[in-house]
């Protein structure tokens, strides 16, 4: 399924391949994080948009080298926390302090309940639940929001069937450029990656 391009055949890769499989992109292998950083900067500067780096561990500054903008996740988490805090207050004040009815699929009526002579609307008593709901909604939003923004879980990815790619979880560093990138030309992109010091450039099919 996958074509292995030897360095000399990069200029005309997989010309004899008769499979109907389409080219997903190119993957280039680098020996160490410094080379990867260097190459990532060059790929960003040449204007590619659909590409990624793959490393066994987080590399400081790689997001800057790749030109990745900051996530908006913190703003979303803040909104979720504020919503949790507000919901905690509304829930408790409605159920404990008032006796009007609201329609929430069925009619629900508040139940003013006097506890140890405290005022019906006792804010201090509500704070622990407001706090907990703030934490709960923030934490869930942070965890699931992170997954959603990363488009996870992704159960299949063309790169995963590429035999050499397993070493991205061990001791090799990769840059992949997707064929759907407007600038992608199999031969030109391959040569470009080669010029960045990649020890191999290979075609990945979808």
């Amino acid at each position: 399924m996958t074509t292995f391009a030897t360095p000399s055949s990069t200029t005309a890769p997989a010309s004899t391949e008769t499979s109907v499989a389409q080219t997903w992109g190119l993957v280039a292998r680098f020996a160490n994080p410094a080379e990867l950083m260097h190459a990532a900067e060059a790929v960003r500067k040449s204007g590619y948009r659909y590409w990624d780096c793959h490393s066994p561990f987080p590399i400081h500054g790689i997001d800057h080298a790749m030109g990745i903008s900051r996530t908006i996740l913190p703003v979303v988490v803040f909104g979720a926390g504020a919503a949790g805090c507000t919901a905690g207050f509304l829930l408790q004040s409605f159920t404990n302090s008032f006796d009007f009815s609201i329609w929430a699929l069925v009619w629900v009526t508040g139940y003013p309940f006097l506890i140890s002579g405290k005022p019906l609307l006792s804010f201090p008593a509500f704070v622990p639940v407001m706090f907990e709901l703030t934490i709960l909604l923030s934490a869930l939003t942070a965890a699931f929001g992170m997954l959603a923004f990363n488009q996870l879980p992704e159960l299949y990815h063309p790169l995963l069937k590429h035999p050499g790619f397993g070493r991205a979880t061990d001791d090799r560093f990769f840059i992949s450029i997707e064929a759907r990138d407007p600038q992608f030309l199999r031969s030109k992109t391959g040569e470009f990656l080669k010029s960045l010091g990649a020890s191999s450039v290979e075609v990945v099919e979808s």
């Binding site: 140890s116 201090p124 008593a125 622990p128």
Partner: peptide, 8 residues
């Protein structure tokens, strides 16, 4: 505050 307020 809350422990003291609640205990009263």
């Amino acid at each position: 505050y809350m422990l003291i307020w609640y205990g009263n």
